[in-house]
């Protein structure tokens, strides 16, 4: 019998502790695992190392972790959609490292795919290149960007079966698919949890073998 990975939100939070690193996908507030983030808030975890594309919007999603000062450091590409994050960064209350969006994606992919890094032309001649090895391949310059992994990844799915096979929807897929590959513990929240066998093998975007726990997401149709 396939293992049933569906658990309560409280059980899913067992691997979340102070000071751990967490991959949190989403673009502004689309495809953000909001239910799991509320679980972190409820558990009270702090000093978190967050890797995300941005910080949602004020008062929603990753913005809740910002508001409650639960983040020690954030690695992301953009914070402009959340005025509170910008304020905290400007005041020096939140430490941030900016990474170009495509580079962020590739570094996490490298982390999940067993690669020692990536070579990208993005950032050559900009402040992003400072301190990084430049490697020339066939006459073109590339930056060596190192892989990123985390202790935990939080994933937002449209559908997941009880084994953790996942289907994403529309632009809510964004970073979810890559982030699910690069953590030691992968928790999926799904809008719809279905029985094993209900998903067509060809439509599955993240294999259940990568997923450790599945939680029912609050419906976010608001």
């Amino acid at each position: 019998m396939p293992k049933d990975k569906v658990v309560s939100l409280e059980v899913a939070m067992e691997k979340i502790h102070d000071g751990i690193s967490i991959l949190i996908p989403g673009f502004v507030n689309v495809g953000v695992p909001e239910t799991l983030i509320k679980g972190i808030i409820a558990k009270g975890c702090k000093d978190l190392e967050i890797i995300s594309n941005n910080t949602s919007v004020k008062g929603r999603g990753i913005g809740l972790l910002v508001h409650e000062n639960r983040i020690k450091h954030i690695t992301c590409s953009h914070i402009g959609s959340n005025t509170e994050t910008v304020e905290k960064v400007v005041k020096g209350e939140l430490s941030v490292t900016f990474v170009p969006q495509g580079t962020l994606c590739e570094r996490v992919r490298a982390g999940g795919a067993g690669l020692g890094g990536i070579l990208t032309p993005v950032g050559i001649g900009t402040p992003i290149a400072e301190g990084k090895p430049v490697i020339e391949v066939d006459g073109k310059q590339y930056l060596l960007e190192k892989p990123i992994r985390a202790d935990v990844a939080l994933i937002h799915a449209w559908k997941a079966d009880r084994m953790g096979n996942v289907v994403y929807r529309r632009t809510a897929r964004n970073f979810n698919q890559v982030f699910a590959t690069a953590a030691d513990w992968v928790i999926v929240e799904a809008e719809h949890i279905v029985e094993v066998g209900e998903l067509d093998p060809d439509e599955i975007m993240t294999p259940g073998a990568l997923v450790d726990a599945v939680v029912q997401a609050e419906r976010s149709d608001d």
């Binding site: 941005n54 992301c76 590409s77 953009h78 914070i79 402009g80 910008v86 960064v89 400007v90 941030v96 900016f98 170009p100 969006q101 495509g102 580079t103 032309p121 993005v122 950032g123 050559i124 900009t126 992003i128």
Partner: peptide
């Protein structure tokens, strides 16, 4: 201090 988002990738690519 908003960050570059996808701009660096777009301009380079």
């Amino acid at each position: 201090a908003a960050g570059m988002g996808g701009a660096m990738d777009l301009v380079a690519g």
